[in-house]
Amino acid sequence: MSVGLITSVVFIGGGVLWILVQSVKGRDVDRRWIFLFIGSTVALALLFHIRFGEKATPIVKAAFNQIENLPEGASVLIAFDYDPAMEPEVGPMADCFIRHTLARKHKLFLMTLWATGQALMTNTVEDVLKPEFPEAEYGTDYVNLGYKVGGFGVINVVLSDFRAMYPTDAHGTLLDSLPMFNKVRSLRDIDLIISIGGGTPGVKEWVLFAGNRGNIPIVGGTAAVVAPLLYPYYPRQLVGLLGGTKGAAEYESELTGNYDRFKDMDTPALRMMGPQTMAHVVVMAFIIIGNIAYFRSRKREGK
């Protein structure tokens, strides 16, 4: 760790210095050097397993507490509204939410409004849910509703009736034959919606079409790009929000800190935060250097 950190710092420092000298001299630095530099920074941090601790911010803590405080056996719906391009950011959130809800013995309803979310949802079920919770029984503890086309229209329909949109689950089993659906007619019977996504439909649509209208608490997990747009909905329309890898890492640390069974779980988001932080430092250095170069060139033109 310390060897890795020192190597990385020397590498980053050297690279930044070189670019600074080039730009102060007024020479253009080819963009490809910049790409290579960022790529190498991330690669180095990954290879040396550089990690920094994360502590949950109030907005993430609020999401955690919401799941924590639901009575045992509550119905929780998780919407996997994302695609492979967003997976590195929001995939770890999905793993965390599944672990947390099942550890709290809640009933889990899984669905997606994104065609590309279907395969990712199945992967999560196969890689996390089944091996880590062998006691969870399909139909009683969790159900996979699969994908439906229609975007927010689907939310509109299931707000009044699940069966109108989903006569069967993803495997073709009639909903009425699943014990979990005995008492669940519509979204209004769900105690918490967890929306994971970063596009349209996504967290915003769940808030507007389900949360607001059905008065159902919503926790969001979202790609960093859209996180700033969702902050205005917290805390009235969104109970908690996980923004990008940072949000996921905070949730992971909360989970490992509070549950003994998750002490040694895989924490991809925490692992990503090391390279992430290093890359942020580099980007910040670039912004400063860029501005120095800009003002110098303006001065030169002025003369």
Partner: peptide, 30 residues
């Protein structure tokens, strides 16, 4: 500006995700 910052974070996460794939799944050196 604030929005841009958040997105930079998102983009770097994606890069980290890809490099993790190359190192871990493909080269198995992590």
């Amino acid at each position: 500006g604030a929005s841009f910052g958040y997105t930079v974070m998102g983009r770097i996460s994606l890069l980290v995700g890809r490099i993790t794939f190359l190192f871990d799944d493909w080269l198995s050196i992590l």
